[in-house]
Amino acid sequence: MNCPKDLKYTSEHEWVSLDGNTALVGITDYAQDQLGDIVFVELPEEEETIDQGDTFGVVESTKSVSDLYVPLSGKILETNDPLLDNPGILNEDPYGDGWMIKVELSNPDEIKELLEAEAYEQLIKEEGA
């Protein structure tokens, strides 16, 4: 399973790409593979304030519903609305066109709680076992 080294991860299978005080958030390659065909996406409103651990959206496969958890607190600057019409992008390009939200961080200290790629790889290995 592909886990780019320059990203950070959560145990809930979100990835985070940091750029100064903003972060892009999406779901990992492992997550999209586990879910199978993603057919529905729910995203938050732009400008909304979100807290770490809250749910910010939902992805649904034909069979299952999964909540998405906020990895870092902040304000939503942008949501990737094309996903709403083409949720399959999440399967095809989870780390690229499949980004979900752009967040302006309100508590950058939380970054320390995220996993590095190696730790995340270890986690999915254990989950898959």
Partner: peptide, 19 residues
């Protein structure tokens, strides 16, 4: 992908549900 379906280990999908 295998799942527990009422006590049976069954294939839930192979290449993808939509396909």
């Amino acid at each position: 992908k295998m799942i527990d379906f009422g006590g049976w280990e069954m294939p839930v999908s192979y290449e993808g549900i939509l396909a």
